[in-house]
Nucleic acid binder design. Structure first.
Length: 463
RNA sequence: GUCCCCAUCGUCUAGUGGUUAGGACAUCGCCCUUUCACGGCGAAAACAGGGGUUCGAAUCCCCUUGGGGACGCCA
């Protein structure tokens, strides 16, 4: 049978890192097996679901490059199908109507909690044979005895006693199906072979298996993924943690890098750290997924990102970089085309934001001097040497790195200077700060005319 | 509280009965150096604890401890 996996987000926010990791593993598994990967939007909660959330989540997946097969399915479009099955279940006494009020349910729950027992529905309506009416829900007649055992592809054998489960609601009083019901039916109808999801769903699995088995529907295989914890070792939360995938984009993280970081959170292939997308697809398997939850490390993400930025020959991020430079307010036409500066800046940047800031002096003529550095390096008399550099640069025949480098060196020799004594004030004149690529490279990239203008301006200001 | 699950350096992990317990991030030191970086070399750093099983346990079993998850007309 052809492998088919799905990612089934609820449209109640954006794509967060946990969801992205789940989607990635699901996607990798399908791609590795030449199977299908589909999307299912679980929008059965009318209160919380929004269309904008669906768009956000899809955009997140697109940015990451996690492409899907088939049109995404909305559960809200399938209510007739759920209804059909529900009617059948009630007919077959696999499910029943229940009119217990929410207040009765909550006091029951409080009582059970007070008695220190697991809160469960007491099956009051199970044998009452109620008819459907405005306020009724449909509950599942969960088996009373025995246990549910399934073989999780990551965790191995998991066993839960039916006495731990209760008659869960399948359909709300507003007519919408609940998660455990809709997900089980959809996985069956959509012929999902492998349900890959977070391990917070382990406890739902026996419920879904019972529903499927009651209906004599085939049960898919399950693979639960360990959770991702934040740097405090707590579960990632929207309040405290950077969990929106698009936030990483704004921070200058490359999608390939985020994917690479995420794939190593819970999965490994010996000692390998860096994987191209194709390698991930080729090497991914569920057998090497870890069981323990993992802590998210921004440091390591940045390290991986740095690797990808350095690897500009294979990863194209010029358009993204250009957007950021424009956002900062610089004019890309003032300086060299971006692909020409890559070799000089790529190995210096952890993020695209760093990169953009570092190369900004090439794309703006408003140089803001870092004043403490100015006073430190613009020592008495250095202006004379700087003037010599200007003169020689103006007289230069060509404009090569080698030639520029020779000019700097000759002035240093002429005036008996140490390299930084001359290089630093020039660097400040050209870039505003003390940190940049090599001084000859900077001069080369800024260009003759602008270099001369900037050095002259700096000399005027500091003499 | 009840149930389910997990447990190797600070972090991500390799390891599937016999290893000096390996790699990576971060940290620290040295080297390189034209500033900041990059890079190179090196150091420190772990099998949660206790019982078994075994000639031999990080690896298998049990208990304890710690952590996570679930217990909704959320997903």
């Amino acid at each position: 049978m052809r492998i088919k996996t799905r990612f089934a987000p609820s449209p109640t926010g954006y794509l967060h890192v946990g969801g992205a990791r789940t989607a990635l593993f699901s996607w990798l598994y399908a791609r590795n097996k030449q199977g299908k990967f589909i999307l299912r939007v679980e929008d059965t909660d009318l209160e919380r679901s929004t269309e904008i959330s669906t768009t956000n989540i899809l955009n997140g997946l697109k940015w990451l490059g996690l492409d899907w097969d088939e049109e995404p399915t909305l559960q809200s479009a399938r209510i007739h199908r759920y209804q059909e099955i529900l009617n059948d279940m009630v007919d077959k006494k696999l499910a029943y109507y229940c009119d217990c009020s929410k207040s009765r349910l909550s006091s029951l729950r409080e009582q059970q909690l007070a008695e220190k027992i697991k809160p469960k529905y007491d099956n009051k309506c199970r044998e009452r044979n109620l008819k459907s009416s405005d306020n009724t829900v449909i509950r599942f007649s969960n088996p009373l005895n025995g246990k549910v055992i399934f073989d999780d592809l990551v965790f191995g054998k998991i066993s839960v006693d039916n006495s731990e489960l209760d008659d869960l609601v399948l359909q709300r009083s507003d007519g919408m199906p609940t998660y455990n019901f809709a997900a089980a039916i959809d996985d069956y109808d959509m012929e999902i072979t492998h349900v890959i999801r977070g391990d917070d769903h382990i406890n739902n699995t026996p419920k879904q298996i019972n529903i499927l088995e009651a209906l004599a529907f085939q049960v898919p295989k399950f693979a639960h993924l360990p959770m991702i914890l934040n740097e405090d070792g707590k579960r990632m939360s929207k309040r405290h943690d950077a969990v929106n995938v698009m936030q990483y984009r704004e921070e200058g993280i490359l999608p390939e890098a985020l994917l690479n970081y995420l794939v190593r959170l819970g999965w490994s292939h010996n000692d390998q750290e860096i994987f191209s997308i194709n390698e991930m697809i080729k090497l991914f398997d569920l057998a090497n997924v870890n069981k323990a939850s993992a802590t998210f490390s921004k440091d390591k993400l940045l390290w991986i990102n740095k690797n990808y930025i350095q690897n500009f020959e294979n990863i194209n991020y010029i358009n993204e970089l250009e957007d950021i430079i424009k956002q900062i307010g610089a004019d890309i036409k003032l300086g060299p085309p971006l692909h020409k500066i890559l070799p000089f800046f790529a190995k210096r940047s952890e993020t695209l934001i760093d990169f953009a800031k570092d190369c900004l002096f090439l794309y703006t003529d408003k140089i803001e001097y870092n004043s403490p550095s100015v006073s430190r390096f613009f020592t008495n008399g250095i202006q004379t040497s700087m003037n010599k550099v200007v003169d020689m640069l103006e007289g230069a025949q060509g404009w090569s790195l080698e030639e520029i480098s020779q000019i700097i060196k000759s002035v240093i020799k002429m005036d008996s200077l140490k390299f930084p004594q001359l290089a630093q004030p020039i660097r400040i004149a050209l870039t505003g700060d003390t940190n940049s690529p090599g001084i000859a490279e900077v001069i080369f990239l800024v260009g003759k005319e602008r270099t001369v203008a900037r050095i002259n301006a700096a000399i005027r200001l500091n003499s």
